[in-house]
Design a binder for these strands. Structure first.
Lengths: 216, 216
DNA sequence: TCGCGTTTGGTACTGAGTACCATACTTGCG
DNA sequence: CGCAAGTATGGTACTCAGTACCAAACGCGA
């Protein structure tokens, strides 16, 4: 497999035949195709495994633990690539420059997204626009993950984990217990004989913990 | 091209050779490859054209007209498939059953999404998390579009245009002039000698057109 | 050492995609 | 009308990914 990456770097993806790779690796062409079903598979060997691990993480989640589950599941993928280090960056350069590999990668990402969407659809069944909104959340998760991963691959950040937490927060914020009716702003007007000081004093704690505040 | 679709329906995608298609169409194999660069290209002939039309629509938009532009640009794609009618459904069945075609389609969708993201990144440059949020909006647009298109392709709706408007509204609502600090609720309290009737009368129009109301 | 299952490598084949060439087929012009 | 130059077409031959099949090598317990 390192033989393949080396050759791709030397002669490019199209300029390298499966014969070349097998020969450099010291095995027969047949063995190569038994190990990696296609030439492209050499480049994405962990994909199946990652899909499984994401599925497993999502399977033990509930609607209540949704956001943590999504973040952790996507985090599995992110951390996998971080652990690969320079190899992940080499793959990124390769994939960026070869359209067919890009297509392959996007297809893989789509599989992640479908996995997220499937769980979300379960969790949100019954909600208005449940299926659509499930798809939107899944897309947001994948987008946030890719955004951070890409930045790290390009060397634009060296705090990817922290960036990831922040990005997931940005991505998921708007979907959190979103108001069903679509009213995001409530204006309440009342007349009272209480002094302005009194009113402000009682409002401040509500404003500072707005999650609870909206309930009252 | 209809020759190809017919053969794919008869013998499946893998069971049909380019020779078969060329022969059925009454041309040489060489001509086939000159017309469609690959065997897969027969199935997505309008893709380049759609990309261009989307790009053109987005190019004449501004940050202020963002949401209309996004909706109309995505609408171009939707309406293109609607106009195809049964052909689009045949393609959907084919693509759904052949993994390599699915991958190809997903790659195409990704190109749309990148186009949306590019314009959005321009429009949102300078905003906090602009690039990430641009990506999120692009993903939401594509997701909403695909959701409706897929439902129509499966025959689950016969009012796709109306569904589309609604879905885009759902998808874009949460991104609309979202408050930077994360506060979504504003509570304003003031003392006035004006009667309750008066206050309500002046508030109602603001509440009913909340886009403008939030400005004041 | 033998027997048996598994892993490996080699050969031959199919089919997509490319390169090249020869032949029709258009089109403009004298 | 006829001819020349460009263009579309079809055919042949090639490369290479991926598959099918077979035969030799290898591991391993009895």
């Amino acid at each position: 497999m390192s033989a393949a990456f080396a050759l791709f770097a030397e002669r490019g993806f199209d300029g390298t035949t499966t014969d070349d790779i097998a020969q450099r690796a010291g095995v027969g062409r047949t063995t190569f195709f038994r190990t990696f079903r296609t030439k492209e598979d050499v480049i994405f060997p962990a994909h199946e495994d990652l899909l499984e691990r994401i599925g497993a993480r999502l399977a033990v989640a509930t609607p209540r633990t949704r956001d943590v589950a999504l973040t952790e599941a996507a985090g599995i993928v992110l951390r996998h690539y971080l652990a690969e280090g320079e190899l992940a960056r080499a793959r990124y350069r390769l994939v960026s420059s070869v359209p067919v590999l890009r297509a392959r990668e996007v297809a893989g990402i789509q599989q992640y997204q479908r996995l997220f969407a499937a769980s979300l659809t379960d969790w949100m069944a019954g909600e208005p626009d449940g299926e659509l909104r499930a798809g939107l959340v899944a897309a947001a998760v994948v987008t946030a993950h890719n955004y951070v991963l890409r930045r790290w691959l390009r060397g634009e950040t060296d705090t990817p984990e922290a960036d990831f937490e922040r990005s997931m927060e940005v991505a998921l914020r708007q979907f959190r217990e979103s108001p069903v009716g679509g009213e995001e702003t409530a204006v309440v007007v009342l007349r009272t004989t209480a002094g302005l000081e009194d009113v402000v004093t009682r409002l401040r704690p509500l404003l500072e913990h707005r999650d609870e505040a909206t309930e009252r």
